[in-house]
């Protein structure tokens, strides 16, 4: 089924979240799509615990706190989130509407599109091993949708973070699990680390010190992987390899949307933050204009001006009256303040 809305926002990072608020004040409804399974973009994914010191009037706020506060601020406007999926295509439906397709097959119709895609989509960091792509989605997975396929299989998990440890612990119930990491220390929740070490003691998990170097077709099992430790090469045959080396950002499908780009950034004007295509806007880290600073602060400003311009597309016959949130009864109503 198709969803219909005023504005579709590509990305759910901090700038997108504040855009919900600015658009909401002008009665503009939005849907958001993000690859990640949670809102907050870089702030939640890369540095949830780290402090930010240059958000006006917040002497210090962490990445996750900022996300949480922005979510609260956006809540009265009932944004709809489509998480864990990527915006792949944008097509002109008619003179006044766009049709947006996501990687999950979801379609959304919107009057305007706001691209707040940061440095692009978060995608898994893939080990640079020759030929690994030939096994992807067959014997190599970077995320897990259906764990039942691993039942009674030999699974090698690579990495030392939360995903690697959590899946090691979880899959040890149904599979023969081996965990490979370059050192016997982990940057994961202490509970998961302890649990893993306990499972290792009980021989339910096999820990291997080393780094992956090669993958090829196996004899007894579907794949053979090679790994090194102390300059020695070892081999192991397995059914599945699950590399968990965190996420990185990649421009992704945005390059194919016919917009003017400047070194992978979307060119916009500084009055409306509109792209070379009318009714498609771009705000936050992903846009480019002379003097651009990649700061959350700048993204917030861009969101406010963009919203003014979106209003003209969403309500072509109405005049927008400028009001302050402090005193406007109308705005208070929208914010749920009595």
């Amino acid at each position: 089924m198709e969803d219909k809305t005023d504005v579709l926002i590509v990305g759910a990072g901090p700038v997108a979240l504040f855009a919900i608020f600015e658009l909401g004040l002008l009665n503009i409804k939005c849907h958001l799509v993000d690859n990640l399974d949670k809102p907050g973009g870089q702030c939640s994914e890369l540095y949830p615990e780290k402090p930010i010191y240059d958000i006006p009037a917040r002497v210090m706020i962490t990445g996750q706190e900022l996300t949480d506060e922005l979510m609260k601020q956006a809540k009265p406007f009932e944004p709809i989130f489509h998480l864990g999926q990527q915006v792949e295509k944008i097509l002109k439906k008619n003179e006044k509407e766009w049709l947006i397709e996501t990687s999950n097959g979801k379609t959304i119709i919107a009057k305007c599109i706001v691209i707040a895609a940061g440095a692009g989509s978060f995608v898994p960091r893939k080990p640079p091993i020759e030929g690994i792509e030939n096994y992807e989605n067959k014997n190599v997975f970077y995320s897990i949708k259906d764990k039942s396929i691993f039942k009674n299989k030999t699974v090698l998990i690579a990495g030392g973070g939360d995903s690697a440890l959590d899946w090691t612990n979880e899959l040890s119930n149904i599979a023969d699990v081996k965990l490979i990491h370059r050192r016997k220390e982990f940057r994961a929740a202490p509970d998961s680390v302890n649990k893993m070490l306990e499972l290792e003691n009980k021989n339910r998990v096999n820990f291997i010190l080393g780094q992956l170097t090669k993958i090829k077709k196996g004899k007894a099992k579907p794949i053979e992987v090679h790994f090194t430790h102390d300059n020695k090469i070892n081999k192991i045959e397995i059914d599945y390899l699950l590399p968990f080396f965190g996420l990185k950002m990649e421009l992704g499908p945005i390059a194919n949307w016919g917009l003017n780009l400047n070194q992978n950034l979307i060119e916009v004007d500084t009055e409306k933050f509109e792209t070379s295509t009318p009714s498609i806007f771009s705000i936050g880290d992903i846009n480019y204009y002379p003097g651009k600073l990649k700061l959350i602060l700048s993204g917030f400003h861009e969101a406010a001006l963009m919203a003014q311009a979106c209003f003209k597309y969403c309500y072509p016959d109405k005049k927008n009256i400028f009001r302050y949130t402090t005193s406007s009864k109308d705005l208070h109503k929208k914010l749920g303040i009595k």
Partner: peptide, 11 residues
Amino acid sequence: EESMLDQAFEI
């Protein structure tokens, strides 16, 4: 830094 290097390759 050591933790972050866990996400790099060919260490």
